[in-house]
Design a binder for these strands. Sequence first.
DNA 1: AGACGTCATGGGAACGTTACCGCACACATT
DNA 2: AATGTGTGCGGTAACGTTCCCATGACGTCT
Lengths: 351, 351
Amino acid sequence: MGQSRTRRPTIIDVAERAGVSKSTAARALAGSSNITDETRERVVAAATSVGYERNHLAVGMRSGRSGMLGLVIPDIANPFWADVARGAQDRAARAGASLLVFSSDWDPKAEATHLKTLRRARVDGAIVNPVSDNFDDLDRFGLPCVFIGSSAERFPDISSVGSDIAQAVRLGLDHLVAKGHRAPALILGPKSRLARARFLRAVHEHCIERDVDPAILAIEDGEYTVEGGRQAMRRLLDRPRVGHLAVFAANDLMALGAMMAVRDAGLDCPRDVSILGFDGIPSGEFAWPGLTTVAKPGRDIGEKAVESLFDEIQHKPEHRRIYMPCRLMERGSLADLSIAAPQRVAGAGRV
Amino acid sequence: MGQSRTRRPTIIDVAERAGVSKSTAARALAGSSNITDETRERVVAAATSVGYERNHLAVGMRSGRSGMLGLVIPDIANPFWADVARGAQDRAARAGASLLVFSSDWDPKAEATHLKTLRRARVDGAIVNPVSDNFDDLDRFGLPCVFIGSSAERFPDISSVGSDIAQAVRLGLDHLVAKGHRAPALILGPKSRLARARFLRAVHEHCIERDVDPAILAIEDGEYTVEGGRQAMRRLLDRPRVGHLAVFAANDLMALGAMMAVRDAGLDCPRDVSILGFDGIPSGEFAWPGLTTVAKPGRDIGEKAVESLFDEIQHKPEHRRIYMPCRLMERGSLADLSIAAPQRVAGAGRV
DNA sequence: AGACGTCATGGGAACGTTACCGCACACATT
DNA sequence: AATGTGTGCGGTAACGTTCCCATGACGTCT
């Protein structure tokens, strides 16, 4: 209460109170080496009685390990990345480490600044969703690093954790086929993003396995936003088509935007148009109809990234590249053509 | 590239390269005191040439200031808290500080653990959404602290930042009245939560000012979740009523749950039931109809909390208690009875 | 019984930084 | 010419911890 402004007790205070040297006190508190039980108990008692708490700054300076990890993601306010952060945080806490979180806003300059801050703070390592193409600085100072997200593929030398896009796309397309949609239209992200290419490649592979010509698939691009999805869907609806339209969007926000565009056009989802999303953000649950989507394991990615980073810090790079499996969240945005009317299958795919 | 495993350069390396003592090097790098321009330039050149970066751990140990702040919130994966975290993070970064984020999951034990970790990490101060009623430990070690959220009111001695519930409720009720709903039903949180009492008190005051008897308002409780709101709405719909029903939910998730319950009952929002939320989470935008809500300024709260914490750290407690204004986000979940049919006003409120 | 190993403990250095003090020199003042 | 004043710089201590080595006591083996 009143003694707020006094100095925090150090190990020397503990040692004095226990009547031993600081070396002995340190040993007793560390728990391990040669110490009489009696001495250890006395030191521990002294420590709790003065309210001693080990100074991690000093430990870090002495040992070269700060016990802190850095996390640089585009935006902590984005639900997916918040989920990643949560997973990373929990995993780090379980190992007694703390997490320094920074948002780069997809800005390479901000990213560089944050990385500099992390190095100055002497974090033991960093997890980064890379925006910039240039990571010389990271290499130069030897900051152990693990990348997350699709863009990590640009850096083959660095360990990374991401979602298994191939498996996710397969999951989504299999589900579409099961519901009677053989050749869905695609709403993809901007051509500049690497994630787009990976997504498209996975779709192609799947189509070829199923003897569907990938070329017949309708494709529209847009920004990875609600508005981007809305506009892409609008263009899709403007195209000539027969029967039911199924759409696979590369991102939940786009899928939700697409849903809005369907409504704007006076059509009904899922009666006239089926929509499948990709991400698994909570908002999809509240849309009407609920958005069926392929959910990325954000939290698991965060956890695995931390584990991978620990390996990296200890110089045992067992796994260079980890892909986490996604799972399907079935809600109401897909019509089931296989039961209701098995004869009239997806628009462009047949006839 | 190859020189990864070499020791990071210290100020001594800089000093040697510049041909000065480390004191001089430190002075030159600090920028301030008596130094020839020529010497300073030489030191700065040496620093950049060896890639020197000041070790914050050492600085922290020497100065007693770690340059880090702690943030303990219920859940970083909750959109509102993520928004708070984002604001705090940005504000801290602007001041050259880093933020350590922890999620307590509304668990007092986890909260205590996180606070202990923060003290050990020697953060300069902490921002906490308090779960526990017992903060003796905080006082005892004199960790500068700022509280956020409604529950902060339990601790009158500690600075706090929160949303202005009274103003928010007034905003919501005024809007309801403007749309022709004089006496809305309320969906509130559990009786144990302080936020509930504050919300209800604000409603009462507003009603009395408007000559409406608060006792006539229908009230249902529930957990602050989608399911809680759904069940509360179900009970509300089971009650006898006349005409249009308007509902003010104390939380957006509950409001979305209520919306689902309306749909489950075969009714239409906003035709049969109007729903007003409170929080401003992004999901409200994607619901159908879009959720009209009173939005809390999460980001601003985070920023203000950091500023307040800086004041606290420097022992100038100018403002002990800050309430941030909320704003109305109008979307589609409220029927406008004032135009369409001004004669048949809200159910229980009249006649 | 003497040499040696084991074990609990104490003393000191080191991590990288900054604050303080002191020294030497230049210049202005009496 | 002797004294004060200011300025640029170097030396050293200190922050709190851990690690290494030295010391002394005790027990064991030949």
